[in-house]
């Protein structure tokens, strides 16, 4: 029972981190119609930014987090402008390969600046936990879960109700028609990247505090897992990304606790394959019923 509850809690913690990354992944995919494979590496950059902000610049925790968000948003916008925007008319395979290139570029840049040795992410504060049924729930998990839920709700409201959010949905559906309305497609996609990258920065904070050690390749595994989570939940759907992330974290931790640490990733991806066979558009993905 204790193992079960402990696994549940660590699964929720990991799952929320995946969910945060998956939200950004899914949003960029839904609106810019591309798989930004460099999304995971933005987390790595965010984590290093946090380390530098606290250890070198001596920023207080909150300012350090905000710095990380700012740096990641700007980086996301820079990548979109320099790497993806020129390829707007190009075949999607070219864009995908470019994204993989950007991913390696960021990793090597980090290698050059920070070296290959892993660095420790600073503790940004103590989060007192509490005990339920004899199991200690740490404050970190509660915080991660809460922040992720709040962000998901905020993002959904933004996409559904704000003028910019509606424009994003319009661009997602038909770029040409959106242009005809006077919506700037480029600006809309740029803002999407800024938001997605900001979410990655928030994820990097939680990732750093949970897993502590950061190295240049830190972002790739969570990136791939979050992509899986996004597909699992239904790519393009924000509640889907949230659900997919949480489920993925739970499956991974339960597989580790009850089956095998070695096999956990295989089990995670196996479940993905099963879900996609039964529901090709993911758990909450839209089955498009379009009228011509």
């Amino acid at each position: 029972m204790t193992i079960f509850l402990r696994t549940l809690i660590s699964g929720l913690n990991l799952g929320s981190i995946y969910a945060l990354i998956a939200l950004g992944y899914s949003m960029v995919y839904g609106i810019a119609k591309m798989l930004n494979f460099a999304h995971g590496d933005i987390i790595m950059i965010g984590a290093y930014t946090g380390i530098v902000a606290v250890m070198t610049m001596n920023f207080p925790p909150l300012i350090a987090i905000l710095t990380s968000i700012l740096v990641c948003s700007l980086l996301g916008m820079l990548i979109e402008t320099l790497a993806y925007k020129p390829l707007r008319q190009a075949p999607s395979l070219s864009v995908l390969i470019t994204a993989i290139g950007v991913s390696y570029l960021l990793q090597n840049l980090a290698l050059l600046i920070f070296g290959s040795e892993q660095k420790a992410y600073p503790t940004l504060g103590a989060f007192p936990g509490f005990t339920v049924l004899g199991v200690k729930v740490d404050g970190m998990t509660v915080l991660t879960l809460t922040v992720t839920a709040v962000i998901m709700i905020g993002l959904t409201l933004f996409i559904n109700l704000s003028r910019m959010g509606k424009a994003m949905r319009a661009v997602s559906e038909d770029r040409g028609a959106a242009e005809l309305m006077g919506i700037s497609v480029n600006r809309t996609i740029l803002i999407t990247f800024a938001i997605g990258s900001a979410l990655a920065a928030v994820a990097s904070t939680f990732y750093g505090m949970t897993y502590v050690y950061i190295k240049p390749t830190t972002g790739s595994m969570p990136g791939i897992k979050a992509f899986t989570a996004a597909v699992f939940g239904g790519i393009g759907s924000l509640p889907g990304a949230m659900l997919g992330g949480i489920l993925l974290g739970l499956i991974e931790q339960f597989a580790k606790a009850y089956i095998s640490t070695l096999w956990s990733d295989a089990i995670v991806f196996g479940v993905l394959v099963l879900v996609l066979i039964v529901r090709p558009s993911g758990l909450l993905g839209k089955k498009r019923a379009e009228k011509v």
Binding site: K166, A167, R169, A170, D174, A178, I183, K286, E290, K291
Partner: peptide, 14 residues
């Protein structure tokens, strides 16, 4: 080319 996934009113707002 109306926006199929936006409501009628949202289409007009666009």
């Amino acid at each position: 080319r109306i926006f199929l996934q936006l409501s009628v009113e949202e289409n007009l707002q666009m």
